[in-house]
Amino acid sequence: MQLRHAKKEDLDAISDLIVRTKRLNNEFDPLFAVVSDAKPRAEKYVQSTLGAPGHLLLVASEGTKVVGVIRAETRERIFYEPHKEGRITDFYILPEYRRKALGHEMLERASAELKKLGVEIVVADVPAQNEIANRFYAKRGFRALTHQFGKIP
């Protein structure tokens, strides 16, 4: 298993994993219903991240196969200290590569890479109802920072 920065050739595989992340979110909450053209949108999204300054796109790969992805971007917390934030926006590992501490390794590696970019606090965006993600971060010392409330008007 290799952890490395994403390359252009990974675009298709990463986009698939991103769509899977969104579908998984939808399993927990109907307000995350996934659009029908999620795949081409994911491709654009990944493309705009690849090599962009202040962005991080790490993959776990086995041979030529991409089995996990973590995407993060740096943001400014203009009113707060710590000031510079590394925001994890997407994180997915294929089922058969789970339960092997790969998620932990990827998070550690991403945190280290973000630190290199000057990040002082790592923040992960996950749906409130996604119990798996909640447990994952809580187990690693993260705690809820903000609550986002949603309602269809």
Binding site: R20, L24, L94, P95
Partner: peptide, 10 residues
């Protein structure tokens, strides 16, 4: 293991 609905099954 990579069927589209695999996370739903989980």
């Amino acid at each position: 293991p990579e069927r589209e609905d695999i996370d739903q099954l989980m």
